[in-house]
Amino acid sequence: MGKVLLLTRREISAYFVSPIAYVAMALFLVIAGIFFALADFRPGAPAGMRSIFDIMMFILIFIIPIVTMRSLSEEQRSGTIETLLTAPVTDIQVVVAKFLGSWIFYLAMLAPTLIYVVLLAAFGNPEYGPVASGYLGLVLLGALYVSIGLLASSLTENQVIAAVTAFAILIVLAMLGPWIATVVPSRWWIIGVRAIVQQATVRTHYQDFSQGVVDLVHVIYFVALTAYALFLTVKVLESRRWR
């Protein structure tokens, strides 16, 4: 545990001296701000954050791969992976620390959006329940996206390839269900496939959060998928043993 904290601290401090991390953060805040102003923060709209929460699911598909692309790719490119993995730490500790580092950076990126809540409170009378559950959804969504970004960055020493890979996986994972639902004819024998794909899709489990519903099934979906992506990342690191 001590070593995980030590490694996590190093990850976080590396973010705060990385220009790309700041660019990603600025980009995120600008885009989120624009959508908040257009969709939620306008006269006549109900005082809430439903639209911005829904839109975040898409914005983050672009932003999080930029945040995570460096994580394991750069260690492989520069060779520091060799000192890292020959220290007396386990591959699991390394992956967990990498995850925590990126996730905490993501949470720090999310923190300034709490201003929206302040703005809504100043100009209206928002319901705080859906806002809180919406943020819980974002915290879980971020964990899943970060773990997939990390998996992608373990696969290559090229940061750009890592980002594009993460982006591709996330697009499929987040949007495949709704898309399948529109193109697949609803015959009885295909309904099973459709249901499975729907259940595997991020959107199915994310949407309820912004509406103030916290369903345990949705929470389990995010936690389990995140853990699975991290498990695969550990396996990729271990695979150097049989390559």
Binding site: A14, E82, T83, T86, A87, P88
Partner: peptide
């Protein structure tokens, strides 16, 4: 691994860290 001090070829290091910060980090590991 606990009983070895290893310096790989070409000495890979973290460029964004300060010398003593890096050494303290590695000592902790």
């Amino acid at each position: 691994r606990s009983s070895i001090g290893y310096m790989p070829e070409n000495v890979p290091l973290y460029p964004e860290m300060r010398v003593e910060e890096y050494l303290a980090f590695r000592a902790g590991l």
